[in-house]
Design a protein around this nucleic acid. Structure first.
Lengths: 196, 196, 196, 196
DNA sequence: TATGAATGAGCATTCATTCAT
DNA sequence: CATGAATGAATGCTCATTCAT
């Protein structure tokens, strides 16, 4: 009724939506799309499963939104990275460092990708994920090419280097889930991939 | 009754069992445990879904058997590797080369692991997979330690190096599934991880 | 929110649960555990088969609950019987009269027992039923012993007499199901078993 | 080829058929029609499940044949009973004695009846069983009427007395299966039903 | 005949989705 | 908005029945 409460309303709604997305990322990341139950996600978010459908009309939309949030997160990271001063190598160190730090806290973030190549995932889902993947790979490739121009990264097919980098980060995410207490290799080991 | 037909019988049975395992590896590898339908696997193997239960009493047993086959495959590879002449580094080159070649043909092999860390996977499944993982990591670590003693691998925590190696291979397996036509990075890029 | 509706909620839930139990008793009693389909029971209760699982997590639990309800019914009857004035014989007349009257309305009640001696019924089920049986037999035996002390029942092994009594009642229940219109023998014929 | 072996052949076939029927009676009696598996029966008879279909084209025929065998057994008992000298009461003692003795060895015999009143048992099955039941009840009723004419059985509706007699015997069969070691009440307790 | 591999219809159970409260 | 009861399509698994050997 009064604007105050309407605002407050929106606030609550937004908060809840964010909480829901966080919960969805965790559960989807851990179990994949098929094995994740709406009820699991609702429980993780602390709401009833019926309420989920007030925010997202179906499981797939929720999943898509989760990816979208990850994309946003990635875009933010890339902006920060580009705003970083220093050499191209410094920027590579920064972005990889952030990715690995992210693994520690939320390995689910980068695992989302793993779960949707399934042949019978709806084409929509596959596309959404594929695009995310290609964006990450593309952004990293750009940084790598800058590094190559600066002579800080070896002169090899940048597409391969970028994919190798993504591969190791995803692989470490898996490791993180299977053995949460195993040590992650230090950043410089990961970055060696780019040095001849 | 006659030995000829009894033999033939067993042969056919064995062949089918192998075909079933192959089909199961492909489908489980692509979709994970929850999303893989027995009917999918049966179709992939060219048999009716009912027949699957003549060979394995339940989905989980089939999954376990699939892992067991992967373990055997790995053991064979390790034997071949150890039988390889040359320096420790040569052996590392050999085993990683084989793993990456395997990715080209059957990326499912190394992906099996990805799908079972789910919190609600039956403890049995999780154990089976965890053991497989630890075996691979352990075997590779041994090779790495030999390489360290020979001065061919950097003197860093061999556990971390081994996990980084497994991570990149698994990450590449994922990449293979998502983008089957993307190029895999060459072997020496992968092995750089072990060199300071 | 408001207590009125919450109460009403619980009421409806309870009603439905009772309706489900009644339906389950009828169907299990008629068909036995294996032959009774959840869909039959749901149809009999006027609900969808999926909803059954909101109330009982599996067929066996529903069956157990059905037995539990029968046990309660029996306990109530025994309380009424013990509250009955008169001689021990009067009480035997009362309880047997009620059992036979029950046969007319719901022969399923006493038939539940018949269906679970199967060798491969889960041990849980068998136990639940065995306990019910022994309770009935034990309670009747007690009444019989009182009758014996009062000289109203013949001085023979009360365990055998009790079992003979249960046997005839169960046998009549079967008769009731097979020939719903055949006459039940009058009470005094049944009670003769206890008189020398 | 030669008549000797052809005969022998028939013999073996007949023996097997009898063994199969015996096995079927045991398993059907214990588990009912729905819960009894062809494989169970075959195992009990010591043959492969496929072979069952050489003797009976389907589960229902096997069940019918089992009933037929029971009918035959009953007819034989009735012939023996009628051939028995003495008073009508002596004959009743004889036939009930045999029934109770049968309970000790093969309680399944009289339990067959219990399992087929199910609403969705095929009408054919229900009829077959109903006829068996009515035959037993009718034969006993005849004996009871003889007893009544001889003044040895009370002058009450013979149909009810007959059904009460069958009821107690069936009830005892159930008891036998649930508690194989519980004592059966002695014959005279059972026969009291017929005495005023 | 005798075996057991193979098929497919049927049933228990799960879970996304809807909707009355 | 929020809840959880209700529905029904989908999937694991069983088992009667068929059939190649």
């Amino acid at each position: 009724m009064c604007p105050r409460s309407a605002e407050r309303f929106e606030q609550i709604k937004d908060e809840r939506r964010r909480a829901l997305l966080r919960a969805a990322r965790v559960v989807f990341g851990r179990k994949g799309f098929a094995a994740a139950k709406i009820a699991d996600i609702a429980a993780q978010a602390g709401i009833s499963h019926g309420l989920v459908y007030h925010y997202y009309p179906e499981k797939e939309s929720l999943f898509s939104a989760t990816i979208d949030a990850s994309v946003e997160g990635w875009d933010t990271l890339m902006e920060l990275t580009r705003a970083q001063g220093g050499t191209p190598w410094d920027r590579l160190v920064y972005v990889c460092g952030q990715m690995i730090a992210g693994l520690r806290e939320e390995p689910e973030h980068l695992l989302m990708t793993v779960h949707v190549y399934a042949e019978d995932a709806s084409p929509g889902l596959r596309d959404v994920l594929r695009r995310f993947r290609l964006r990450v790979i593309g952004d990293l490739e750009e940084l790598i090419q800058e590094g190559q121009r600066a002579g800080q990264v070896e002169q090899r097919a940048s597409a391969e280097l970028s994919r190798a980098l993504v591969a190791i980060v995803q692989g470490l995410a898996i490791n993180r889930l299977v053995e949460p207490d195993a040590p992650l290799p230090p950043l410089d080991v990961v970055l060696r991939i780019l040095k001849s």
